[in-house]
Amino acid sequence: MDKLKSETTALPGLPALPNAWFDRKGLVQIGLLALLFLAPLAAHLLGHIYYVNLASRITLIAMAAVGLNLAIGYGGMVSFGHAAYFGLGGYIAGISAYHAFDFSPVMSWPMAIPGSDSMLVIWLATILLCGLLALAIGAISLRTTGVYFIMITLAFAQMMYYFANSWPTYGGEDGLPIYIRNSLPLVDTGQPWTFFLIAFSGLLLAMAITSRMMKSRFGAALTMARLNDTRLATAGVSPYPIRLVAFVISAMITGLAGALYADLNGFISPTMLSWHMSGELMVIVILGGVGRLYGPLAGAILFVMMETLLGGMTEYWKLFLGLVLLLVVLFAKHGVMGWLAGRERHV
């Protein structure tokens, strides 16, 4: 009994204080956000644009992982195909910008849709289309569980990948450049610091939505669907629609991150849709801590920093990534957040 108790308490030796800002967990979380905000601010003031863009990259990868974490961590749906939504968001940004650039329509039948270089239009389209795609993929995939679910989500994402690869209009495997970054009213999105602030707001919003939603009735039902779907069904709530809605929201968040990511790079290619991308997002979620609100942020910082620092020294940096992942899985099962901030206690 004592052993059980200590395992479920937030911190050995300290009482569990839910919602406290200044316990260990609160400090770690504030620290991570401060790091992500202040480091690029310093770089911006010192004129190091490269590091501002690097922070934007971390931010958007983290935001994509926040979406995936909603599916994997909170919903127990191990999707190995979230690159489909990340890439779709990217292609929507790219294709829309491409048509806005040469004033051609995206489609002329059954109705004429012009291109647009407005981020607001692109984000709206991304939410709609990623939602629809996830509704279709989820409706089929969620009829399976376990390894079948992993494989079927992977299969759908690979279909998207090969489709993009073989569609010459938008560059096929060569990809498509975005010559001028898409715009927002009143601000100059071309400024690295401004763009970082947009990305940072997106990440904060995605995390706030996740946090708030998981405390709501829907979150309670989703948690029960993950922990014990028999209990949920016995109570009279069908788990399937709950999971499906969570899957769709998850895809929308990842898709929005993808749309912004394309704008950050000024370029899209099928790489954004490939299973490597799905795998990277999954690794980030696991590194950071599955089902932890700040897990994707911690994971993305670790991943991108390793990629940048170790990748600068050796092209075999993924060997070291593999070692770190191995250590996390073996010795810190709750990821970086579990290690830094202690175990989560459900109250």
Partner: peptide
């Protein structure tokens, strides 16, 4: 068949929630 990591109250609350029929409330 209960959700073990959750508190007793949370396990019972899901039944109350189901009875009220409002699981698609997000806020």
């Amino acid at each position: 068949s209960l959700a073990e990591p959750l508190s007793v109250l949370r396990n019972v609350m899901i039944a109350v929630q189901a009875l009220q029929g409002h699981s698609f409330r997000f806020w």
